[in-house]
Design a protein around this nucleic acid. Sequence first.
DNA 1: GCACCTCGAGTTCA
DNA 2: CTCGAGGTGC
Length: 670
Amino acid sequence: MNEVQAKKQIESLRNEIAAHNTAYYLEDAPQISDFEYDMLMKELRDLEEDFPQFTDVDSPSQKVGGEVQKSFTPIRHPRPLLSLENAFNVEDIGAFISRLAKAGIKNPLFLVEPKMDGLTLSVTYRGGSFFAAATRGDGVTGENVTANAKVMRAIPRKLQKELPYLTVRGEVYMPKAAFAELNAVREENGEALFANPRNAAAGSLRQLDPNVTAARRLEIFFYDVIDVQGIEISSQSRMLKDLSALGLPVNPEQRICHNLEDIGAYIVEMTEKRHRLAYEIDGLVIKLDDIAVRETLGATGKFPRWAIAYKFPPEQAQTVVEDIIVGVGRTGAMTPAAVLQPVFLAGSKIRRATLHNEDNIRDKDIRIGDTVLIQKAGDVIPEVVRVLSDKRSGTEKEFAMPRFCPECGSPGVRLPGEAVRRCINIDCPARIYESIIHFASKKGMDIEGLGPGVIRRLLDEGLIHDIIDIYHLDKEKVAALPGFGLLSADNLFRAVEKSKTRPLKNLLFALGIRHVGEQGAKILANTFAHMDDLIATDQETLTAIPEIGGIMAQSIVNFFGEENNLALIRSLAEAGINMAGETQISGQTGPFWGLTFVISGTLPGLGREEVKALIEINGGKTSSSVSRKTDYLLLGENPGSKLDKARELQVKTLDLSGFLLLLEGEGAHA
DNA sequence: GCACCTCGAGTTCA
DNA sequence: CTCGAGGTGC
């Protein structure tokens, strides 16, 4: 094809796609199938790739799957969308029921529904017509996704009855089959795959371009009325019938239960049945059916008292340990990992699982060739639960921890009383590589664009050998690297330049002094006015600092006793890196003064570090684990074991909206 | 010396 | 998130 033909073809494809895009906005306009639409798009992309001279930012191909969308307008919910307390076993539900009994509720009636694994959407109708839709967001403020919800066929434009006003809450999901189909197409097109239907649904709904949403099959089940004029709501079961009569999709799978036994039986039934459902569920929601009774209960902290969410136990899978390999970390720690026969588990393909240390392998008696049961701890990190020993054939090989570093051959030493074996060679290539990653990381010098991949290449090409080389890179040589250009080399240089002004605490963390982590670095940077003061100090002075004991002090003194390290710091100073400490934030002020927070799970909208900074600015402290001294556990999505601990110790919990309310209200000590 | 808080270090997949 | 180990208070 010549240029002229290509240009013509590209234009006509763009027009055709644009026409279909507009058609999606119009009711009952003729629609092409998802498949045809994708094919048109693919053809356009291919052509644009072959003839980049015709590439145009306005092309419909550029609007799909591009950059992360950030321009949805925030919408404040009329009433906060509360999240539910979680139950992980029948005992938790038992406790929930006894709490109800204690509150004087006799013969309660429960409505139990599947807990859809999707994303919450609130939809508003005015005069019986679709008006707006918003995501849950943090519960108080969501994102306006009206344009996208409008193209979802599962959400009716008009209700069967003309209510003056209705805001309902539902869960958007992508059926398993649609998810599989979508991923198959994406794979064919060489696009990134979605990990699971929920991510696919979320990704499809949160699109700048509603055409993408329209092309995906999204469904919704409604299950709650936030606000209504025109009908009386007396019970959950009645409400579901009413919603259904209005033409809103409602999950037919639901059951009335009278007691813990009923609920337990339903859990058993659904645990088995859930794999046969067309959509994914991650638990069951147990609600008091009677709305009037609910109102006598109200809400505790941030959860309504009248409902609880049961979560299925983590999915487990069987696989075979094909090998056990040993990696070497920044400190020389030799960490064994199981290479697994790839297996799908909870939305991702698992190939490896950490085995922590040699003792763990011995305790669980894990051998190469064993069939093992794995699960994801906290829904993310795979772990070997146990060996299925009756599947042993006798050909399995016992694993022996190597005595020498697999990277450099130096001895690996295990100190008495320690669980890990460490490579003792300070110049071990693996250790240098990991040290540089640590140095450039976010909590370290925060050099954007200098991640593991780039560092690997710079090392391999001999452009860097050590940390200090980062500040003496040759721009032309970087630009000449495969995959690099003038622009990316320039960006890297700018990021390196920017890192020179980081606060001292970042530098101290970046240096990777043993036993000095994020917290330790912060304390040191607040105590010493300058790096030179820290270098000149002695062990005694260090030990006198709160939170710094003998071992940490020793480690710090040792570090600055090494000529290599001093030379590195001198060179860094010459390169212009900031060495001045921070003036301590003083004063006992802020709404959170004296309060300790622990964060669990992922927080929608806000990053963990941002929340942490927010707490500290307001005088509060954050900690990584729940204890009796914890004032609040801040709950994100999918909280892990910290929630169990908090419940055990009766620590108060907050979700993000409750947290923000606390901050605004300044009633933190009430 | 012990119990209990905290922190550090390593980790998986998209 | 989990594990191990350092720091502190009793």
